[in-house]
């Protein structure tokens, strides 16, 4: 019984392209949490350099993380910028909309990234709802 589990664990870490999947999802999260921009550029570089069209899990996670990062940028930077530049800064209502929008959007994106990372760690595919490509 115990023997069984060890072999299952080993087989997960032996999935050959699992590492790249983990890196892709980590970069998505780093981009959202600690080093916005920089992590995204590394992700673009990996996306361009490595085969992202394969059906292997690394290809899946690279495509998903790449697409989701672009959407995250649009939702967090562009939409917020549009809101802030069109709304009146001297009204509390502006902040009552913009801050909750940003916080909810950001936390949902981070949660999705954590799930993506969890699946990458488990050596499985993951599909970002709406913001990830469907294949």
């Amino acid at each position: 019984m115990n023997q069984d589990k060890v072999t299952i664990n080993r087989s997960v870490s032996e999935i050959p392209d699992r590492k790249m999947a983990i890196i892709a999802e980590s970069l998505y999260l780093l981009n959202l949490l600690i080093i916005p921009g920089l992590a995204f550029f590394i992700l673009i570089w990996l996306f361009a350099k490595y085969d992202n069209a394969t059906t292997m899990i690394s290809g899946c996670h690279l495509r998903q993380a790449f697409s989701a990062s672009i959407w995250a940028g649009l939702l967090l930077v562009l939409v917020t910028w549009v809101m802030l530049s069109t709304m009146n800064h001297d009204s509390p209502y502006t902040w009552m909309i913009v801050i909750p929008y940003f916080v909810i959007c950001h936390s949902v994106l981070v949660l999705l990234g954590i799930m993506g990372l969890a699946k990458a760690l488990a050596g499985k595919k993951f599909h970002y709802p709406i913001i990830g490509p469907s294949s």
């Binding site: 949660l111 954590i114 990372l117 969890a118 699946k119 760690l121 488990a122």
Partner: peptide
């Protein structure tokens, strides 16, 4: 809390 989410979604299949 980050790790709690990671944990359950990693482990529960």
């Amino acid at each position: 809390f980050f790790f709690m989410v990671l944990f359950v979604f990693n482990v529960v299949n």
